[in-house]
Every structure is written in C-alpha cells, then in structure tokens.
Design a protein around this nucleic acid. Sequence first.
DNA 1: TCTAGGATTGAGACCGGACTCACATCGATT
DNA 2: AATCGATGTGAGTCCGGTCTCAATCCTAGA
Lengths: 364, 364
Amino acid sequence: MSTDGSRRRDVTVADVAKAAKVSKAQAARALGNYGAVSDDVRERVLAAAEELDYRPNELARSMNTGKSNTIGVVVGDIENPHFGLAMRGITDTAKKSGYNVILINTDEERAAEVDAVRVLLDKRVDGLIVAPASSVETSHLQQVRESGRPLVLLDRAAAGVDVETFAVDMGSISYESTKHLIEAGHRRIAFVSTVRTEAPYVAGMELDSSQISDRLDGIRRAFDDAGLPHPTDLIRLNAGDADSIMRITRELLSGPDAATAIIASDGLIALSVVEAIQESGRSIPDDVSFLMYDDFAWTRLTTPPLTVIAQPVYDMGIASAAALIRQIEGRKAAGPGPDLVATLIKRGSVGAPKDAEVLSQAGG
Amino acid sequence: MSTDGSRRRDVTVADVAKAAKVSKAQAARALGNYGAVSDDVRERVLAAAEELDYRPNELARSMNTGKSNTIGVVVGDIENPHFGLAMRGITDTAKKSGYNVILINTDEERAAEVDAVRVLLDKRVDGLIVAPASSVETSHLQQVRESGRPLVLLDRAAAGVDVETFAVDMGSISYESTKHLIEAGHRRIAFVSTVRTEAPYVAGMELDSSQISDRLDGIRRAFDDAGLPHPTDLIRLNAGDADSIMRITRELLSGPDAATAIIASDGLIALSVVEAIQESGRSIPDDVSFLMYDDFAWTRLTTPPLTVIAQPVYDMGIASAAALIRQIEGRKAAGPGPDLVATLIKRGSVGAPKDAEVLSQAGG
DNA sequence: TCTAGGATTGAGACCGGACTCACATCGATT
DNA sequence: AATCGATGTGAGTCCGGTCTCAATCCTAGA
C-alpha cells in the first residue's frame, strides 16, 4: 500500500484533482462539500481521495477561514482533580460542538500564564478559558480582550476583566460553613491555603486570589455576626508542598491557643492536613474538627467521613465551554447561566470542641 | 490604543514592513531572526512591530515549516488522577522543549479514539501520545505509523504496533501482589476491572486490554506456582459506574464461597469497592483484605491505610513525552528508557482471612 | 431554432509567513 | 582602479487549502 517508512509529502487537493482529472477548484468543492459540483465529478473526486487516502490539512484550512475550531484552556494544575473534573466538563462540551482543546498548565505561576495566553493567541485559538492564577495582575487577560478573541474565566474572577466568569459564590458558602463551625462551639478556627503572599496575613490585606479573599471575608462576617472576634492568627497562607502543609498543621494544633477546627482550602491541602492530624495521634472530630473544599469521592472513605464544601466543578467546566463557544459563534446568551452554588455537605468530621468553656465567650 | 471592540484583521509582517518602510522579506527576516539584516533595518522593524503590537501567526508559520510544535495526547479519562498525573508529566516535559499539548479525551471508546487520532493528524501535530483503549483493535494506530508521524504509547501496549511503549510490567507486579495475598492465607481472591468484554470471564479468553490480560496472567501464575486452583469465578470484568461496582462488591462478599480478598484494578474502582465494603459493615482487613492499583494520597488516610500497587505514572508521562520529542527531532535514543516498575506498598489493608482452615488446602 | 439563466468548471488570487534567487553594496585585497 | 567574497535587499514563489470571477454547458421556454 503506502510506501514503507516515512512518506514525506502529504496528499493534497491538487493531487486528488490530478488523479480525478478535474481542476483543483472542483476537487476542493467536492471535498469541502460546497459550491456546485456535478455528480460525475463528485464521484470521481471522492473515489480518488479515497484511493489516495487524502486527508485535509486543517492548518491550511484554518488559515484562510480564520477559524481553528480549537479552544485554549489555561489552568494552574491539572493534576488537581478539581481541575481534572472541570477539564472533563470542558472537553465533553467542546467535543459536542466540534471543538478541540489545547491545554496549558501554569503551575499557578503568573509568568507561565502570561506565556500560555500568548502562545494560544499566536496559535489562533478561537477562544480562551482561563482559571487566572492572580485576580489582581490581569493585564494579559485584558490584552486577550483587546485582541477581540472571546475569553471566559473559570473558577476565579479577575479584577478589571469584564468577561463571563464561572465560579461559585465563595463568600456565602464560606460564611455558611464558618457559621456551622461556630455553632458547633468552635472559636479557634484555622484556614489553610496555598495562595502566595508577600507578608503574613493581616486583616483586610489584598490577596492575589479573589476566591480566597471571598472565603476569608465569609469567615470574618460569620464571626462578626456571632459577635465574636475573628482569630486571624489562624489564617495560614503560603502553604506549599505536602511537608510544609503538615508542618503548618502541627503548628496550628500545638500550644495553649491551638486551633479546634481547621478548614482546608482545597483537596490537595486537605490530604496533608488530615495526614498530619492522624500522625499526631489526634482524632477527628473529637480532638479537631475538619472541613474542606471540594467533595472528592475519597472524603467518604475516611473515618469519619469528611464534612466538605461541594463545588459544581464539572458543571462549571460545561458552562464555561458552552458560553465560550456561544461567544465564538456570535450567539447571544439564551438566558442566565446555570446557578453555580457550592453546598456544605455535613458528614462526620465536625463536632464540638473539647474545651467547651469557650462557649462562655459567646457574649463577647 | 487599539480601536475599541473586536478588531478584524490581525497585524501581519506586511503591515510591519510598510510601517518600517522596508520590504516584506526584510521585515520577515528581522522578525524571524534569520538571514542577513542590517542593524538599521532590524531596529526599525522591531520598533514598528512593537508599535503595531505585531504577533506572528503560528498557523501560517506551521504551514510552511511543516512543524506545529504541538503534540497530541489521547487518553481515556483525564478525570482519573492516574491520567491527570501522567498528563502533568507530559505537559511539563513538552513545555520544557517548547511544545504545546492538545488533549483529547475518549471515554475509553474506541470510536472516539479513532476520531481523536484522525483529528490530531489532520491538525498536523508533530507527534502523538496515545493510551490505547484497546490493545487489540489497533488499525488506526498502524495508520499513524504509516503516515510517518511519530507515535508513542502510554500506559498500555497495542498488538502489532511496533512503537516505543511506556508502561509498567503488569505481569510481574500482579504475580507479586497475588503471592502476597496467597501467603497471607487467601485463596478466594477477587479481581474487579472495568474492561469491557462480550461474555463473562473464562480462563484464557482474549481481553481488549493487554494490561488486564497481563494482570490476570500474573494472578494465575501465582496460584499455579502455589499449586492452588485459580478462582476464576471471582474475576469480575465490565465493572461500570459506581453503583455497578458496589453491587459487584456486595455479590463478591456474599454467599458461602465469598471472596476473602479483593483487588481493585484502578483508583476509581477502589473508591466504590471500599465504600461498599464499609457500607456492608465489614472491616478491612479483619473481614476482607483489600489491595488496589495506583498509590493515591488518599489511600494513606483510610482506616486502615490501604495496601497499594504504586505505578510511576508521572515518570511514564515524562518518559513518553521525552521519547516522542526525541523522535520528532530525529534524534536516536540516548540509551535505554527509564525502568518503569510498579511497587507493592504494604500498608494495613491485607491480613489473614478469617477462615484460617483454607490454609490446609495448601497441599492442593 | 434561438436564447436566457442556472448549473458547472477552471484559472488564479489570497491567507501570513518562510525562503529562494538575482541584484545591489561595500570594504578589503592586489 | 579592478576584483572578490561577504553582506543587504526586494521581488516573487510556495505551503494547502478557500473563494471570487469569468467562461462554458445545458436545458427549458419562446
């Protein structure tokens, strides 16, 4: 059949045309299924194409249609099932509409993200879905905007970038979960997150991530509404790899003023926090209460099963891809997007703190 | 700056050339950093490019260099952290060499895989990494071979497709783990996998997945070597969604001839198997022993922590991408690839079966 | 039989870069 | 001053498709 080994040149319309004894234009029409072509010509062309095993060069096609049928996705870490699931929603939706997906991972580095966006733009993707590493430094996203190519944000908002954004309202779910912990009697509630900051946390400082700001806001509001002081000394940012998270957890749990409950900001952090708690010989929820973001399947398998904040990640993926494709194809929004609400799923990892006397502080 | 809203046409070399008052050829040279260009011209061109915010069209560039600097990756399910991690290895490595990655998910459907491969080939990716859904029907992979474009297989081998393949030796690790269970006293060892088959399992039947065949082989050899009959009635294939896996698990554990140990073929299956075991009120390892493929972090958090077969998934991703890029760039293999060996990590989920009398069968 | 009007058809422009080729330019050599 | 090799430079082709446009073919209606 085909000459052995690597065959250099691909079969082109011109080759097919020659084989079918018609002009390039006619072959292209028959192949591309447009314009007027007689049955006779069409048959000969298709037969020749079949015979030669012709495959259109999508690059060339994209070049003069201006459409690549490809969307670019930029996320911080696909290894994190949170994004894995969102990605699944995106690819499922994209495929349904005939789009492919180029994925770029940024390790949550802004420089890598800037690069990723540029590369995708250069590749002439039809649109972009970005989970911005920073909600503050967003000039590269504004450039996308200016380039005229559709952009949609996933998971996190970005200041000054006025595009459709698919993320849950972190403030309210954070408020709700904190309230849940406070009502269980907790006053010393810790929060562990990977957001990077220059300096340790102080109330009201500007964070790079709108998500985390919103969560901290929710926590503070819950304490305020309960008439209690917010223990900002238990906010731990800059949690990095597994070791550093475990160290932070040990710190939080030691000393006279130890935390009685810990909120883990994502599934990866949760793994290390729980591991550190177990290693320290403490039990959940008798010694420490625990609550985490993202409802992964494994959270039901620990003893006790973990109380989690479920986020509709897959749906967020679907919604963002659907919205992007709608924009690409120039259609108006049919209606309001889906309600992307997080839910507090109470399982067994939240209980009353050991030291019940803290309840007496309730009067503040 | 830029005219508001969507600007239609992109800035091209021709535009830059005009602005810099030089020929298109000179502008292209200055921009592309090739050929001979005087300092004066280079400066003017670069200044004009900057001013106009020129960005090269990678599509056009690819078209006449014949290189897209993109590799295509086809996997069954990115949602599965197994592939998520491999993907991470691939993108990390690709980025380092200046390649981008197009990801296509197939849901483990062969039709989708055939499609994915064709689409990527049409998009003129420089090479392909495929985790084949089927190890038997591989004609589409052979076509890739014939097209002359580099191909590398990940995670699974494919019959009749002679390309570099990065997967662990499932036979030996399966043998080793089964031996471990047998030595602990187990005779009724079940194996649960999602591979689809026409008919229920019978010894020696051809399976679609080389991985699973190899694992079953290893199990059988371990029983053979121990002089014991292999309980093929406990091989459960076609495990689908969470519900069906839980149902299968309940079946395996009920009746007079119940399984005393279960091997889960991947992390997703494991979640449902463990959940079903816990729900049934049985305890691991007192009532059932449990062993699974893939060492995910959460396996350390259950009570007891789970005994697992760790696979170097991230390294497999790295190795496959590195090999592919090497092929693309026409370099010879520097040496033998990395040793991709799976390891049995003994934690707490394997114990002696309750019914110790089975030991007396040892003489067979 | 003649002709208007739609169906077909082929030549060639074009998309945006990379690259070939022939034609300057220029300082250095003899 | 004539020669030579090393740059510089611009015109134009090519990659593999899509698409415009003018020319040609047909067939029905007059």
